[in-house]
Design a protein around this nucleic acid. Structure first.
Ligand SMILES: Nc1ncnc2c1ncn2[C@@H]1O[C@H](COP(=O)(O)OP(=O)(O)OP(=O)(O)O)[C@@H](O)[C@H]1O
Length: 728
DNA sequence: GGCCAGTCCCTTTTT
DNA sequence: GGGACTGGCC
C-alpha cells in the first residue's frame, strides 16, 4: 500500500515533508494522527530513514501499539525495530541502560503513587517534622509539579513564610535521597533523569542523537517542560522532528503540560514548516458547529477553521434529569432506543464524565438495564491490595534496596512479624547503612525474641529460595512458584468468605496476565513485566474489542472516537469543575468539553441534573454554562416521559436555583416529620410489592410526597410515601 | 501481634 | 460513600 494514498492534498504534503522540522497544527478529527502514521510508513517505505532510527512518541501505550500495527499494514514487520512508546516508557528504556552514572543501578524500581506516599511518610517520620495540617500528599503533589518544570531541590525558591513551600523546600531533597537509597524513581524522575544524563554526558546524548534520526510526537499540546527538552536535546542537531497537536485539546496543564511548547517549538527549531489541516473527517457538521461555537469562547487560543463534507446529522440532544439516577436511567433508555431504531451496538457508545466518582451510579443503572459496559480507570487491577502485595515480592527480588516493597510483604501473608520487630530491623538497617532486606543477612546479630528471629529467618530463606529459582525457571513458571511459596491459596482459603475468594481470584488473574504477557512478548522477563505494570495507563487496559458501552473520564477519551457520545454531569461546578475561579482554568474545562464533543461521529447527548450528590450531600445544582454556549438551534431538549410530567409542573428554570441558601440538605427535606416515618434521601424503605429500596429523591411533603426509590431488584420507581415503610 | 469497628477526613482530571 | 487511620479488644 502506498502511504500517500487516501490522504487529502494538505495531509499528503505534511507526510512528504521530511527535510526539516515541522509542526502539524490542526483541529479535532482533521487527521493529525493519521498523518503521523502515514509519515512513519512513508519514511520507511521510501527508505528515507531506516526504522531503527525512528522515534515516535504517543500519549498512551495503547496508542503506541495501534500506531505500530497501522504502520505494519503499509510496510510489514520492518516497523518492529522502530522505537514507539510514551515519553515515560521510552525514558525508562533509556535509563535501564544509562542510569548508573547517577548512582542508581539498572534494576531500579518505578514507584507508583502509593509507594511514593509510603516513602514520603517515612521521610517525614524519621525527621519528626510537624506538618500542621498539610498532608504528605500535598507535599508530593507540589514536588511533582516542581519536577514537571524541572526544578531541582537546590534551585527551588520557596515563598517566604508560606508553610507548604517551606516544608517542600525541606523535604524535597530528603525525598530524593530516600528514593536513591531505595534505588527507585518516581514517574517524574523518569522524564528528568535522561535530561540530567544528556546534559552531563555529551557522549551519551550524541549516541542517542545518532540513534534517533527522526523524531515524531503526537498530542504535542500536552507535553511538559522535561518532555519538550527531551525532544529539543535529541532533535536539535539533525532537526528532523515532526510534532502534531491542537491547542484546543490541551487538557493536562494541571500536571505541567504547557501549550507554550507549541510556540517554543518554532523557537527551538527555526524555520519549522507549519501545516494546518482544516477538514474534519470524523463528525457531522452539527457536532462540529456546536464544538466550534463552544471553544470559540476561549480567548487564549489560535483561531482555526474546521469544515466537513459530512452530512448535517442529528441535533444534539439535551437531557435534563432530576438527579444522577434519573440521568443514568435516561441515558440507559436512550441507548436502548438507539440500539432498537438506529441498529447500533453497545460498542458504538461512550459515556464520558468529569470525575471518576460519577461512574458509580451509571454502572448501577446500566447493570440493572442489562446494558453491557466496560469501565476505563477507576480502581486499577494492579492497584488492588493483594496484587500490589504479590508484585511487591517481585519488586524486592529485582531490587533488594526497595524498602517500601519489603515493608509491604514482610508480613504478607501474616507470619508474625509486627511493628516491634520491624522497628528493630529498621533501626538496625539505618545504623549499618543497609536496606531492610540486606540487613536480614545479619540476622544472627539481631537482639530480638527467638520467635521474631525465627519468623524473619523463615521469611529470608523463602525469599532467597525464590531468588535462586529465578535463574533456573522461565518467568512464567517462576511466577507460579512464587504464589505457591507464599502460600496465598491456603491463606485466602483459610480466611474464607466471598471477599477472600475474590482476592484469590484476582491473584489467579494476575497469573493469567503474566501468561498472556509471556506469550505476547518476545523476551518476557520479570523486569520487563514490572515495567509494563508500572507504566500501564488507564486506557491501556480498555477492552475496546468487547461489544460494550465504554465509560470513561473526558481526559481518558482524548484521541478516541465513537459513533454516539454521552457527556453527563453538565452542571455548574462539575463541568466546568469549580475549584479556583481562574480564567485560565475555565478555559481548560471548556477544552475538556470540546474534546468530549469532538469524539462523536454521529450523535451527541448532553445531560445535566437538578440534584447532585457530592460526598454524601445532595444539593441543587445549576446547569453548566457550557450548555448555553452551544447555539440553541443545534440542540433538542429531549422530552422523555418524566420530562413531560415535570414540564407541566413548573417552568424548568425554577428548578435550577442559584441561591445556595434555598438548598435543602437531606436532613431538612424529611418527608413526614409529624409522623414517626422520618424518610430522607438515602433512607432504606420497603414496599409490599417491590421489596427493599433506597430513596434518592423526594418531591413534596408529608405522607403524600412522591418518593423516587431505587429498588434492589425492581429498579427505579416513584412511590407515594404512605405506601412504603421505613426499614430498620 | 492481629483484627475489627468506629471515626475522620476528603473528592478533579493521570503518566 | 469510601478509604485511611486509630483505639480497643482478643
Ligand atoms: N483523508 C482522509 N480521508 C478519510 N478519512 C480520514 C482522512 N483523514 C482522517 N480521516 C479519519 O478521520 C478520523 C480522525 O482522524 P485522526 O484521529 O487522525 O484525527 P486527529 O486530528 O488526530 O483527531 P483528534 O485530534 O481529534 O484526536 C479518523 O477516523 C480518520 O480515519
Amino acid at each position: 500500500m502506498n502511504p500517500l494514498a487516501g490522504l487529502n492534498p494538505e495531509q499528503a504534503k505534511a507526510v512528504a515533508y521530511v527535510g526539516g522540522p515541522s509542526l502539524i497544527f490542526a483541529g479535532a478529527g482533521s487527521g493529525k494522527t493519521k498523518v503521523l502514521t502515514h509519515k512513519i510508513a512513508y519514511l520507511i517505505d521510501q527508505q528515507i530513514i531506516s526504522p531503527e532510527h525512528i522515534l515516535a512518541v504517543t500519549f498512551t501505550n495503547k496508542a503506541a501499539k495501534e500506531l505500530r500495527s497501522r504502520i505494519e499494514n503499509y510496510v510489514g514487520n520492518k516497523v518492529r525495530s522502530a522505537t514507539i512508546g510514551t515519553f515515560h516508557s521510552i525514558c525508562a528504556q533509556i535509563l535501564r541502560r544509562e542510569i548508573e552514572p547517577l548512582g542508581f543501578t539498572t534494576g531500579f524500581t518505578i514507584y507508583d503513587e502509593s509507594d511514593q506516599l509510603s516513602l514520603m511518610k517515612k521521610v517525614i517520620a524519621e525527621r519528626s517534622i510537624v506538618l500542621q495540617g498539610i498532608t504528605p500528599q500535598n507535599i508530593l503533589s507540589k514536588i511533582s509539579s516542581l519536577k514537571s518544570k524541572w526544578i531541582e531541590p537546590e534551585s527551588y525558591q520557596p515563598r517566604k513564610g508560606i508553610l507548604p513551600d517551606l516544608l517542600v523546600k525541606q523535604l524535597y531533597p530528603h525525598y530524593q535521597d530516600a528514593l536513591k537509597q531505595a534505588n527507585s524513581l518516581d514517574f517524574d524522575d523518569l522524564l528528568i533523569f535522561p535530561l540530567k544524563i544528556f546534559s552531563s554526558y555529551p557522549e551519551v546524548l550524541e549516541k542517542y542523537q545518532r540513534k534517533f534520526k527522526f523524531i515524531l510526537v503526537d498530542e504535542y499540546q500536552d507535553t511538559n517542560k522535561p518532555q519538550f527538552m527531551f525532544v529539543d536535546m535529541l532533535g536539535r542537531k539533525h532537526r528532523r522532528v515532526c510534532v502534531v497537536g491542537d491547542d484546543d485539546q490541551s487538557i493536562y496543564s494541571w500536571r505541567g503540560a504547557d501549550i507554550e511548547n507549541i510556540l517554543r517549538f518554532e523557537d527551538a527549531f527555526p524555520k519549522a514548516k507549519v501545516f494546518k489541516l482544516e477538514q474534519n473527517y470524523r463528525s457531522t457538521n452539527t457536532i462540529l458547529k456546536a464544538a466550534s461555537a463552544v471553544v470559540s469562547n476561549n480567548i487564549h487560543r489560535a483561531k482555526k477553521t474546521l469544515w466537513s463534507e459530512n452530512k448535517e446529522g442529528e441535533p444534539l440532544s439535551k437531557i435534563m434529569a432530576e438527579d444522577e439516577y434519573d440521568e443514568a436511567a435516561r441515558i440507559a433508555s436512550d441507548i436502548k432506543v438507539e440500539i432498537l431504531h438506529a441498529k447500533r451496538k453497545f460498542k458504538d457508545f461512550a459515556i464520558l464524565y468529569r470525575t471518576n466518582a460519577q461512574s458509580r451510579v451509571l454502572e448501577d443503572i446500566l447493570r440493572r438495564n442489562n446494558i453491557v459496559y466496560v469501565l476505563v480507570g477507576g480502581v486499577k487491577f494492579y492497584d488492588r491490595k493483594e496484587i500490589k502485595d504479590t508484585l511487591a515480592f517481585f519488586h524486592l527480588l529485582c531490587n533488594p534496596k526497595d524498602d517500601v516493597s519489603f515493608k509491604r510483604i514482610v508480613n504478607f501473608p501474616p507470619r508474625g512479624i509486627g511493628k516491634t520487630t520491624l522497628d528493630y530491623v529498621e533501626a538496625f538497617a539505618q545504623k549499618n547503612h543497609l536496606s531492610l532486606y540486606e540487613s536480614l543477612a545479619q540476622l544472627d546479630s539481631f537482639e530480638l525474641s527467638p520467635r521474631s528471629i525465627q519468623a524473619l529467618a523463615q521469611f529470608y530463606q523463602m525469599v532467597e529460595r525464590i531468588q535462586s529459582s529465578l535463574t533456573t525457571l522461565s518467568f512464567e513458571e517462576w511466577s507460579r512458584i512464587v504464589i505457591l511459596e507464599l502460600g496465598l491459596r491456603e491463606y485466602f482459603k483459610e480466611i474464607g468468605g466471598e471477599e477472600a475468594l475474590e482476592r484469590l481470584a484476582n491473584v489467579d488473574e494476575l497469573l493469567n496476565d503474566i501468561s498472556k504477557f509471556c506469550s505476547d512478548e518476545q523476551n518476557p522477563t520479570l523486569e520487563s513485566y514490572l515495567e509494563k505494570v508500572a507504566l500501564n495507563t488507564q486506557i491501556d487496559s480498555w477492552e475496546d474489542t468487547k461489544n460494550a458501552v465504554s465509560l470513561m473520564t473526558l481526559h481518558s477519551a482524548k484521541g478516541l472516537e465513537f459513533p454516539v457520545v454521552f457527556i453527563c454531569g453538565l452542571n455548574q461546578g462539575l463541568l466546568p469543575m469549580e475549584r479556583d475561579m481562574a480564567e485560565k482554568s475555565i478555559e481548560e474545562e471548556r477544552r475538556l468539553f470540546y474534546v468530549g464533543l469532538t469524539r462523536a461521529k454521529e450523535k451527541v447527548y448532553l445531560s445535566c441534573s437538578e440534584l447532585r450528590t457530592y460526598a454524601g450531600e445532595t444539593k441543587y445544582s445549576s446547569e453548566s454554562r457550557f450548555l448555553s454556549e452551544i447555539p440553541a438551534e443545534l440542540i433538542q431538549v429531549k422530552s422523555s416521559k418524566e420530562n413531560v410530567i415535570s414540564a407541566s409542573r413548573q417552568p424548568r428554570k425554577s428548578y435550577f436555583r442559584k441561591d445556595v441558601d434555598a438548598i435543602k440538605t437531606p436532613e431538612q427535606s424529611s418527608v413526614a416529620p409529624e409522623t414517626s416515618q422520618q424518610i430522607q434521601i438515602g433512607s432504606i424503605v420497603t414496599h409490599q410489592i417491590f421489596g427493599a429500596g433506597k430513596v434518592f429523591g423526594i418531591d413534596g411533603y408529608g405522607p403524600n410526597a412522591k418518593l423516587h426509590i431505587m429498588f434492589r431488584s425492581a429498579g427505579q420507581k416513584t412511590i407515594i410515601a404512605k405506601y412504603v415503610k421505613l426499614s430498620l
